[in-house]
Write a protein that binds this DNA or RNA. Structure first.
Length: 498
RNA sequence: GGCCCCAUGGUCAAGUGGUUAAGACGUCGCGUUCUCAGCGCGGAAUCGAGGGUUCGACUCCCUCUGGGGCUACCA
């Protein structure tokens, strides 16, 4: 496995980068990088109806965001291009092989309409048979079949090309993750379409032609492709090509439904882009995804891409499906944000701009103060950057309402005494007092009035911040503007204590 | 229905015949503390079930059960 490893990630641009696809991409990339191989991106856009406008660009962009790079692709080119199947089709690449199969009698043109096919299928189901394509030229000679073609063409029918499945064969391979698998040819459901009526090759055909032409050595893909493998092996065989190694990775499961994570599941955020917008770090996404269906040797959980490359071992891929655990992702992201705090701080500040708490200019001029606010507000407890907004909003940018519960602390006998003492002491403190000084002041009030605990702290906390709970009060006081705090306290007194 | 795959705590999982069955997330409890966050400590699984094989099975075999995938002129 040391020389000339060539693997590919082959998305179809029918949507944005999905977690499941990202994982396929990541593992292929790790495989390539670990073995000093080549990582190729090929766009499988043979279904014109399903392609979306900037699907391809978005996929590549998000892949790059995740820190993956590639050696051959539509945008970078390469020795085996083009790397878009639509272009390869336009170049006649698939047609040549289809003609070859047609000529050898290994494939044939079929003119059945979708109505006929549906009827066929229904009848089989009614008879409790497995849906199975019925070959329509049974017993006919080549020339008789050609005559039929002409007849259908005259009716204006468009053919598809079907591969003549050798039903007596059994296809077997040693799967990189699952071990030995064999599937009988008769299980694929009969002769299947390799070229659609619009002239495009189907996935199972194009993939073989491209993987062969691009000299792909290892195909790592989702479990959902297991049943495609015999179809593809038939094509390799018919064309006289050798088969690459296959590895079918377990699927990522939606924890709520228990089913394969699908683009249509709206209860889970599952596009890389969505996490990116919330402020998840790419390293965290890689870290989390890299641990879904794969495990390292030791006990650590936090890894960089470089470490993953180093440790990668395809033998440690899990066979069982894995549920998508959002909580763990959040924890991993928290770990990465704390680890890369310097790098994340600008993103955190930007969140405040986006939320309208500060202007872009303030983000620059008050950078240091903002960093302190973010730190004191408890950035170490958040899961993604967007969450910082609600943490800092009060009391640093807005003041909340004073609830009845708060009021009871404030207006109690002790509360009033504490307020008086605190107000006086606070006023006397220097503008640039530090946290220790605030702490010492509060302690001395405690000694003086013999009031402690919540009855001591809550009146002060509430009068200065309108909050009953929050970060360490002395540290907050350091960051709050003294005049504003005095004004806040005055207003509180006027409204509730007079 | 058919074919294929899978099965260790709520979740991710280590473990490849003899282990006190790792670790992490989450959760619960305790501590630190005015509170929140953080941090520290601690609790909770006998390995889906039943049969074998073996001196001995979570580890091997069989059956069952459960879960998943596929079954398109989608990829």
């Amino acid at each position: 496995m040391t020389d000339d490893v060539r693997v590919r990630y082959a998305p179809s641009p029918t949507g944005y980068l999905h977690i499941g696809n990202a994982r396929t991409a990541l593992f292929n990339w790790l495989f390539a990088r670990h073995y000093n191989g080549t990582f190729i991106i090929r766009i499988e856009d043979t279904d014109a109806n399903r392609n979306i406008a900037n699907g391809e660009q978005s996929q590549l962009e998000n892949l790059a965001w995740l820190g993956l790079d590639w050696d051959e692709s539509p945008d970078k080119g390469g020795e085996f291009g083009p790397y878009r199947q639509s272009e390869r089709n336009a170049d006649g690449i698939y047609q040549a092989y289809i003609d070859d199969l047609l000529k050898k009698g290994l494939a044939y043109k079929s003119y059945k309409t979708s109505e006929e096919l549906a009827q066929e299928r229904e009848a089989q189901q009614a008879a409790k048979q497995a849906p199975h394509y019925v070959y329509e030229y049974e017993g006919l000679s080549d020339s008789q079949r050609e005559a039929k073609y002409a007849e259908f063409e005259a009716q204006g029918l468009k053919p598809v090309v079907r591969f003549r499945v050798p039903e007596d064969k059994v296809y077997a391979w040693d799967d990189i993750v699952k071990g030995h698998i064999e599937i009988g040819a008769k299980e694929v459901g009969g002769d299947w379409v390799i070229q659609k009526a619009d002239g495009m090759p189907t996935y199972n055909f194009a993939v073989v032609v491209d993987d062969h032409l691009m000299k792909i050595t290892h195909v790592l893909r989702g479990d959902d492709h297991v049943s495609n493998t015999p179809k593809q092996m038939m094509i390799y065989e018919a064309l006289g090509w050798s088969v690459p190694a296959f590895g079918h990775m377990a699927l990522i499961i939606n924890a709520a439904t228990g089913k394969k994570l699908s683009k249509r599941d709206n209860d889970v955020l599952q596009f890389v882009e969505q996490y990116r917008e919330l402020g998840y770090q790419p390293q965290a996404m890689d870290n989390f995804i890299g641990l879904l269906g794969w495990s390292p040797k030791g006990e650590d959980e936090i890894f960089s891409l470089d470490q993953f490359i180093q440790m990668f071992d395809e033998k440690r891929l899990t066979k069982a499906n894995a549920k998508f655990d959002q909580k763990k992702l959040e924890w991993i992201n928290n770990q990465w944000m704390r680890r890369d705090k310097e790098k994340v701080m600008p993103q955190l500040i930007q969140e405040l701009v986006n939320a309208g708490l500060i202007t872009a200019e303030q983000a620059q001029t008050q950078k240091d103060w903002l960093a302190n606010v973010i730190e004191v507000a408890g950035v170490d407890g958040i899961s993604y950057t967007r969450q910082i907004v609600d943490l800092v909003r009060e009391p640093f940018f807005e003041l909340g309402e004073i609830s009845d519960e708060m009021l009871s602390y404030l207006t109690s006998e002790d509360g009033r005494k504490v307020y008086q003492a605190w107000y006086k002491a606070y006023q006397a403190l220097p503008v640039d007092a530090n946290a220790e000084q605030y702490m010492a002041t509060i302690r001395s009030i405690q000694n003086e009035l013999e009031i402690k605990g919540r009855n001591l702290w809550n009146p002060i906390r509430i009068a200065t911040t309108h909050q009953i709970q929050g970060p360490n009060l002395p540290e907050m006081l350091v960051l709050l503007d003294k005049n504003k705090v005095l004004a806040t306290m005055d207003a509180v007194a006027k409204k509730y204590l007079s």
